[in-house]
């Protein structure tokens, strides 16, 4: 990682490392938290890390398709949030809770 020692020019590696850190924080948060709303926010963090990677490669390779794919990721994220929050609202109406540990009917 010798490129990281010279911060006078920001290369794609910097953005990729930042995206990797962001993705890891999102993944750890998804495993650690039990509030389903916060778990959804962690999924958004991971999707944003992927988007940042796409834009970084688009910039590094001077290729527009990386930026186009970000739009599709964004639409999938929006659809996922709409359906996911509807599921959370439906679960809350039945169980009066948004805690993932309370939804353990299949656990036996």
């Amino acid at each position: 990682m010798s490129a990281l020692a010279y911060p006078d020019h920001i290369t794609a590696t910097y953005y990729l490392v930042l995206a990797a850190i962001l993705f890891t924080i999102g993944a750890v948060g998804l495993l650690v938290r039990k509030n389903t709303l916060v778990m959804f926010m962690c999924i958004e963090l991971m999707l944003n890390a992927a988007n940042l990677t796409f834009v970084s490669f688009a910039n590094a390779l001077n290729d527009i398709s990386g930026q186009v794919i970000v739009f599709f990721t964004l639409v999938v994220a929006a659809a996922e949030v709409a359906v996911g929050l509807a599921i959370i609202v439906a679960i809350f109406r039945r169980r009066q809770s948004v805690n993932a540990d309370d939804v353990d009917l299949l656990k036996g």
Partner: peptide
């Protein structure tokens, strides 16, 4: 070294 791959296969950034 992905960043040294093919450039602008779908069009440049502008």
């Amino acid at each position: 070294r992905w960043v040294t791959g093919a450039h602008s296969t779908r069009g440049a950034l502008g």
